[in-house]
Write a protein that binds this DNA or RNA. Structure first.
Lengths: 209, 209
DNA sequence: GGGGTCTTGACCGATTTGGTCAACGGCGGT
DNA sequence: ACCGCCGTTGACCAAATCGGTCAAGACCCC
């Protein structure tokens, strides 16, 4: 790909990347046209092919970029929690979800794109990229569980199941609406918090409520 | 649409309907080609346009059909529970989920199709059809909550939130994998049951465990 | 006004699109 | 054996869309 892309102002890079991720996230690789991406970004198709040699390269770059971006905000999140010595499961989770929502605000379509790219049949992704995502996902959960106070849970409660259940519900919400705007995200976040609170209230030992 | 379609053997009707729903469920109305539907069904494109006057008509018919089918299995489910006088929240939910899984087995792609059709921008759906789905969805939840023993829940637990949380997680699972085969469905079902059990164990008053 | 950079929009051949239609094949009746 | 019927096909159509190219414009600083 053309390195000049990175010399563009950040906003313009984001404009192009976000438009592309939204479009790719809305359909398969094949069914997503370069034209629709250009239109969404408000630039000419020619410009896209000026920076990316073809559709495939753009797609692969976006996936790589998306993962890197996830890793970065994830690390920032970790750092914050370490700094504030936050160790409560649901408080970390809440902050994590807030960070995630910020991400959706800055990069609408990123998560949808990543999920779609990962699960697409006839994937265009290299095995390496797939593995990279696997690793990131596994590590985030593990790292999260490692620094949370799991003893607060009642006996017999599997914290992994709690994380997974809440994550699934968040994905369900995202899949339902395909929320993009800040307000939509905020609404979803509030609903999510309700469920998290319900779980906290009932899965924690009484002395930790 | 051509009424002769209904004189076809049931299997063949299903073959065509299911193929169409799977394809429509995988992308937007515009991006889904009649050709791909025909190929999936293993019939010629000409045949499709012999039974449906155009793509739009086929789409609208499928949505109507999908809702009707949902209503039917829903009623069967109600009937069974009434017959067996089942009133436990989680037992009804479990059976309901089983019925749903059977549905996915008989009509792979139906739920994805309905969800996609409902949430698609530039919808091709008539407002009436949208409202019909709204009604069905609202009614199923209400009817379910009405016949379940809600007093078993601890004070302060909102049963509606429990239903919604579990439904969301199921949608999340479906969105993740786009599961189609019977085994995939079975795996998902088991995971779902795990979460339901966890909730039951912790949201019910102790005397009802 | 010259030189460089970002950007455009017209343009290409190839493919795919929704939709049509004449003709085929198999089968039941006679 | 021949007919008529009906579900079905695959070639075919004009139109749109596809990924990708490229010469020329727009804008800037020197």
């Amino acid at each position: 790909m053309n390195q000049k892309f990175f010399k563009l102002p950040q906003e313009r890079q984001d404009l192009i990347r976000n438009s592309a991720m939204v479009e790719f996230g809305g359909g398969s690789f094949k069914k997503t046209s370069a034209d629709s991406i250009a239109k969404r970004a408000g630039v000419s198709k020619g410009l896209l092919f000026h920076y990316f040699k073809d559709k495939r390269e753009m797609y692969l770059y976006l996936f790589q970029y998306a993962i890197d971006e996830c890793v970065e905000i994830f690390n920032r999140h970790i750092l914050k929690n370490t700094y504030f010595k936050e160790t409560d499961f649901f408080l970390i989770l809440e902050k994590g979800q807030k960070v995630k929502m910020d991400m959706v605000r800055r990069h609408p379509g990123l998560f949808r794109f990543v999920m779609r790219a990962y699960y697409e049949r006839d994937s265009v992704l290299t095995p390496k990229l797939r593995k990279k995502l696997d690793d990131v996902l596994a590590q985030t959960t593990d790292s999260f569980l490692a620094r949370a106070d799991l003893y607060k849970f009642k006996d017999g409660v599997d914290p992994r199941a709690v994380v997974r259940l809440l994550t699934l519900s968040a994905e369900g919400m995202l899949a339902e609406t395909g929320a993009y705007t800040a307000e939509e995200i905020e609404t979803l976040f509030l609903e999510y918090q309700k469920y998290a609170q319900m779980l906290r209230q009932n899965l924690y030992k009484e002395e930790y409520l």
